[in-house]
Design a protein around this nucleic acid. Structure first.
Lengths: 243, 243
DNA sequence: TCTCAAACTTGGTAAAACAACCTGTCGGGT
DNA sequence: ACCCGACAGGTTGTTTTACCAAGTTTGAGA
């Protein structure tokens, strides 16, 4: 059984054209080959070509003029920066993407701030899963996930192994809850002695602390992730259009 | 010649479905009629229905699950909510909105980091305008704006008075440049002694530093704003939908 | 030189088929 | 009686073929 999922043809075409634009084969301002030419070259049908070109237009790589042709704009400036929604990244990407070790997993009393984000009583219990991420062999980030106890039951989150599925997908398939939006808070503070030890960082360097609270469509909190980044080794970057 | 251009069918279908969602005919969480049902009701072909539903999904009105159906999310709320984009706020809002005093205005040598964001040589000169914002009578934030010298000429930025116009509007009307997008970087560091004095903050509390680089559509840097926030009095908050 | 039709371009609609995925039902087995 | 697997029938996702409409450019002919 070959389970290597091949990307759809239109997506392959998108990538091929992006590569040519970046390589300078289609320089900015020049006209892209016509639909008919692309059909000939790639051996696909017109709707497939049109679907690929629509994606490129919506992403800002090209623009089109009816009756004239499609013109290269170049790599969209916004796309060079992968919008670094930190909370989303840690709630969505599989843990196997980032090497690290599990340092804690079990029911604990909630810190005040996390309790407020979960709409729970301070000091009440919830499930905590904490991982120390390593990059290039060095401790890099401390990631903590808090879940209401009823959401942690029947999941693989208690396991010591890295999840091969994103937390979002795991909770959706096992518990049927759907993340709708994330509220993110960013603060800075000095590290505790324990954090200095775990992260192997100087004790006079501040920590960037990102709290991401995932909620469902009705606004009910589902999970909170805290990401601790030593400020001498990390910073956050985001890009957005002005309105 | 009656050339009242009628919108394409798929666009009409988009509007019809949006109206029904807003009217509550399709409440959030409910399942949308299947493609087949929509084909029957509106008397159009499947590609037309699919095109309309694709637009709705990309705009965040609905989400789709292969094998199950399409589900209503409601009017995309996050798109209308002005999220607290710090850099955008300081580059767009009039200075008169926030009381404060001008602490510096003139040509200075660029710090390395700002020079990199402006694509300029380190140590080269640029115009700096720095204001200390006060809230409830207390020093609160230190906001610095760097501009290439050619962009500062002929503007009111050298004036000691608070601008009644946002920096973005001012530069657009005086110099004809348009902000297209902003790249934002967030770091944390310990304050300098001068910053401790100016902000009236404890010297063992870290600073949240936000750098916002405004660029035009081609990616050329136009201006950089740095916002320094004592971490014991400020934090950043943002909200966004999960993709 | 001017006019206009032909030949290109992209945009939109229709009809059909297959693939991938989800969910329930109906069995047979334990 | 209970559990579990196979299967049927639903859904969306992708691809193909076909045709017409609308905008632009070009060149042939008057």
């Amino acid at each position: 059984m070959s389970l290597e999922s091949v990307p759809p043809k239109y997506a392959q075409l998108v990538q091929a054209l992006q590569r040519r634009i970046e390589a300078g084969t289609y320089p900015p301002g020049s006209m892209l080959p016509s639909e008919h030419q692309l059909i000939q070259e790639f051996g696909v049908s017109r709707p497939t070509v049109v679907a690929a070109l629509r994606v490129l237009r919506e992403q800002g790589w090209i623009e089109s003029q009816q009756g004239k042709g499609r013109f290269v704009r170049g790599r969209p400036a916004m796309a060079t920066v992968e919008s670094n929604r930190t909370g989303q990244a840690y709630l969505t990407n599989p843990e196997t993407d980032s090497p690290g070790e599990l340092v804690e997993a079990g029911a604990v009393a909630l810190p005040n701030r996390v309790a407020a984000l979960l709409d729970a009583q301070p000091k009440s219990k919830a499930f905590l899963r904490r991982r120390l991420i390593t990059r290039e062999g060095e401790p890099s980030e401390l990631v903590s996930l808090w879940l209401p106890l009823e959401l942690s039951e029947g999941t693989d989150l208690t396991s010591g192994e890295a999840l091969r599925q994103g937390i979002r997908q795991h909770l959706q398939s096992r518990k049927g809850v759907r993340f709708d939006h994330i509220v993110e808070q960013i603060t800075a503070r000095m590290p505790t002695v324990q954090e200095v030890r775990q992260l192997g960082m100087p004790k006079n360097v501040p920590l960037l602390a990102i709290f991401g609270a995932a909620r469902d469509a009705s606004g009910r909190p589902l999970a909170v992730v805290e990401v601790l980044l030593p400020a001498d080794r990390h910073e956050l970057e985001d890009a957005y259009p002005v309105r």
